[in-house]
Design a protein around this nucleic acid. Structure first.
Lengths: 147, 147
DNA sequence: ACGGATGTAACAGCTACTGTTACGACAAGA
DNA sequence: TCTTGTCGTAACAGTAGCTGTTACATCCGT
């Protein structure tokens, strides 16, 4: 039983940032600055820029430089799923096998990898399916409902 | 896109250790030592003792001390699911909300928590369901099949 | 040219897991 | 009772990732 304090909040922060940009644009603004987003998220603008940089590389956000610069969405909120965001910021398995290969001369050491992989693959596939079912539009709707 | 090198291998190692004990006992041995298990897992005996200590606290394993001591299963392989093991060694959410609370004066900052929690809860519940469907007996069967 | 914003490097602090050494506690068996 | 083998656990270093922060270069609209 571990506490896992350092759990992944990256998906949360990324979804927060994108949703914020989406709502801000919907209210008629051109671009959102990392400063504004950071205020809503309650963190440092650099943290936001770093994260949005990964999202831009994934084709979910764009940035303009120079004066009056800032961030925009590359796609509509409705076409971005939590899976898109997850893959942009967290790609990597939830569970891992051994760090160093177990004893191949042992029956268990030899067969445990494939056995666990079968389970992990299924878990991962289902997790992705679930994340894919929720769009940022859904998230925004829930957000506004809570207000 | 992060690599997540340090992903959770604890579930893998715990399942490996318990399965090893189960097979060893099934072959007529009384107890398994942390040294033997560590050899199969390819790690240090102390790592195994630490992990099995958590499994003992969860009621999945038992240890005897003194000469000729070692580890035994508290329950049959068939009655131990991967969820039992997961809860014993990994309890804690896969995803987390913000580390420090977002701006409650912002619509998004205020509503994003509940919105994401709804998704995360569902993901977590499904993950548990899936892990609960596989017993260590199933794992052992797969392991022996691979041999 | 100026000003405002991004892009990014660099660093410290925190947390978690692993691996290792060391040593005390314990109990079976001689 | 003494020996011996094993667990139980503390302690520490090393690795890794995320966060937060400072600093500074880069870019571009005005």
């Amino acid at each position: 039983m571990r506490s896992r304090v350092g759990a992944n909040s990256r998906l949360t922060i990324a979804a927060h940032a994108l949703t914020w940009i989406g709502l801000y644009q919907r209210r008629g603004h051109e671009v959102a600055t990392s400063e504004q987003i950071a205020t809503s998220v309650n963190t440092n603008p650099v943290v936001i820029r770093r994260l949005l940089g990964e999202l831009r590389r994934a084709g979910l956000a764009d940035s303009r430089r120079g004066a009056g610069a800032g961030w925009t969405l590359s796609r509509d909120l409705e076409s971005i799923t939590l899976l898109d965001v997850y893959e942009a910021v967290e790609s990597g398995p939830v569970f891992a096998l051994h760090r160093s290969a177990p004893d191949p001369g042992c029956v268990v050491g030899h067969g445990i990898g494939p056995a666990m992989t079968a389970v992990y693959d299924e878990v991962e596939a289902t997790l992705r399916e679930q994340l894919a079912r929720t769009t940022l539009e859904d998230v925004l709707r829930d957000v506004l409902k809570a207000a």
